[in-house]
C-alpha cells in the first residue's frame, strides 16, 4: 500500500501535463511520408488550432511540396560577409524558434564565426564577438545546415524522422522525432537545435506563415534545423537570411538550372567547402570574390 501511495506521489507532476499536450491521435499519427492528403489537412488544421491556443496567433500552416527539377544550393562570399549577424536574427524572425529575449539568437539556425585572417580554422573561432564589425584582422563565416548530400544526421536517426527531400533539403518531421539527439551528435556543422522546453516566443514575434516541415512552432522535446526556408523557397522566394544580407554575400539557387547564379559561382569562383574531410558532400559553399 505504502508503495502504491509512494508511486502516486512521485508521479504527481504529471498531473500538470495540460490536457491535449499528448493526445491519442498524436501518438497514433503516421510518419509524414505515409500521410494521405486528407490526413495531412486534418493535422494541419489541428496544429493551427493548437498553436492559436498556445501562442495566441492565428497561423496558416501549409505543406508545400518540393518542385520537380530543383536542387537547392547556397553559396556565401567570405570576401563580402562583414559579420553583422543580420542573417542570424532574420532566421529567428522567420522560423519561430524559441527565445528568452529579443536578441537571444541561441536557437537561430545560423552561427556567425569570427576568424583571424590568415587561416580557416573554425576551432579557433569566436562566436561571442561584439562591438563594431568588421574588425581589422578578422573575417566572418556564418555557418548553417549544409544540406549534405551524404548527410550523417539522416544516417544517425533511428526512426527516419529526418530525411532529404527531393529538392535536396534535409527536413525533420517534428511529430515523429523521438528526441534522442543522435543527429546532433552526428552533425559536423553544429546545425541542429533541440527544444529543451516548450518554445517560448511572444505573440508579436510569431511568423504566421508556416509549413509543416519547416517553420511551424515546434513541440517540446524534438530537434529542429535550417530548411533553406522551404516555405519561402518552394514558392520562388529567397531564404530570409539572403534577403536581409546587406553586402550581397549570399547566393541561393537551383543547381539543376545551368544558367543560375549559383552554378556560375561554382564554375568560376574559388570555392571552399567547410570540413570537406568529413565526407558529407555539402550543398552549402563558401567562395572568395
Amino acid at each position: 500500500m505504502a508503495g502504491i501511495a509512494g508511486l502516486v506521489t512521485a508521479l504527481k507532476p504529471l498531473l500538470s501535463l495540460e490536457r491535449g499536450d499528448i493526445s491519442l491521435s498524436d501518438l497514433l499519427q503516421k510518419h509524414y511520408q505515409e500521410l494521405s492528403a486528407e490526413e495531412m489537412s486534418r493535422i494541419l488544421r489541428k496544429l493551427e488550432k493548437q498553436s492559436n491556443e498556445d501562442y495566441g496567433v492565428a497561423s496558416n500552416i501549409n505543406d508545400t511540396k518540393a518542385r520537380e527539377g530543383v536542387q537547392f544550393a547556397y553559396a556565401l562570399s567570405l570576401s563580402k560577409c562583414v559579420g553583422c549577424r543580420r542573417c542570424a536574427h532574420a532566421c529567428l524572425a522567420e522560423n519561430n524558434q524559441s527565445r528568452e529575449s529579443e536578441d537571444d539568437i541561441e536557437m537561430s539556425y545560423i552561427r556567425v564565426l569570427e576568424l583571424d585572417k590568415g587561416s580557416i580554422n573554425v576551432e579557433e573561432s569566436d562566436q561571442y564577438y561584439d562591438g563594431e564589425v568588421p574588425k581589422k584582422d578578422k573575417y566572418y563565416m556564418p555557418v548553417q545546415c549544409h544540406q549534405c548530400q551524404d548527410s550523417p544526421c539522416t544516417k544517425a536517426c533511428p526512426v527516419e524522422a529526418t530525411w532529404m527531400e527531393p529538392d535536396g533539403v534535409v527536413v525533420v518531421d517534428y511529430n515523429w522525432c523521438i528526441g534522442c539527439r543522435y543527429c546532433m551528435a552526428a552533425c559536423p556543422y553544429d546545425a541542429r537545435r533541440f527544444n529543451w522546453k516548450k518554445p517560448s516566443l511572444p505573440p508579436e514575434s510569431v511568423n504566421p506563415n508556416q509549413n509543416y516541415l519547416s517553420n511551424r512552432i515546434r513541440p517540446q522535446g524534438v530537434v529542429e534545423k535550417c530548411t533553406f526556408c522551404l516555405h519561402r523557397t518552394r514558392e520562388g522566394k529567397y531564404p530570409a537570411c539572403l534577403e536581409v544580407c546587406p553586402t550581397g554575400a549570399r547566393v541561393f539557387g537551383n543547381l539543376l538550372d545551368p544558367d543560375s547564379e549559383i552554378n556560375y559561382i561554382l564554375k568560376n569562383k574559388r570555392v571552399y567547402i567547410l570540413k570537406e574531410d568529413a565526407g558529407t558532400t555539402p550543398k552549402f559553399y563558401y567562395f572568395f570574390d
Binding site: 501518438l27 544516417k155 526512426v159 527516419e160 515523429w176 523521438i178 528526441g179 534522442c180 517540446q220 524534438v222
Partner: peptide, 20 residues
C-alpha cells in the same frame, strides 16, 4: 530518460514505427 519524446517510443518498433 534521455529521450525528449519517450511517448513516441513506438516509432522504434517495426510494426508501428520505422526503424532506420
Amino acid at each position: 530518460v534521455d529521450l525528449g519524446r519517450p511517448d513516441r517510443f513506438l516509432h522504434l518498433m517495426p510494426p508501428f514505427g520505422r526503424m532506420n
